[in-house]
Amino acid sequence: MERIEAMKIITESLNDELLICNIGFPSRELYSVKDSNTHFYMLGSMGMASSIGLGLALSQNRRVVVFDGDGSILMNMGTLATIYNQNPENFILVVFDNECYGSTGSQCTYAKTVDLGKVAKAIGFEKTFCFRDTIEFEQILKLKGPVFVHVKVDPGNADVPIIDLSPEDIKNRFIHEINKNRSF
């Protein structure tokens, strides 16, 4: 399956989780699959989705899911060590691994030869999962985090339009959503 199919399956099983989505086609695809006040579309700053998700998870109680990519994880691999050490219970990192820089023309990444799931395990993540043809996300949502979810997908971007929200609108409605039912 391609990334957009995997996104559909996972977003269908989400309830009120806060969702940070990676730069480029991943955010455009998520926006076209489903838009929600719980979504933060990261339009720039490649590599930062996992880190933004970590900061959000550490600063409030609601569960945070990050949709990240293999190229972006490789760019900011140090943050995996930070996530592991901070150990946030309410944090799920999903990596859509198409073994390429999908948004820029599907040039190969080193995820072809480096198993990112093994990297997460070596860092210390106790809960790591790898999905290929089927994704059972309900079981993931029952776990205490941090959880590392490696989803192997085929390269390919869906034919979806640019996101027609301004960065400030994306931010403001996201913060509003977080403040709405804050538990601490």
Binding site: I52, G55, L56, A57, N76, A81
Partner: peptide, 24 residues
């Protein structure tokens, strides 16, 4: 104060942005 030592300053700015969204 929640204090998060980071591996690279860029990452630190990412984490802090998420914390700002979370009200910090």
């Amino acid at each position: 104060i929640i204090h998060v030592p980071v591996t690279r300053e860029e990452e630190g700015f990412g984490i802090a942005a998420g914390a700002y969204f979370g009200g910090k």
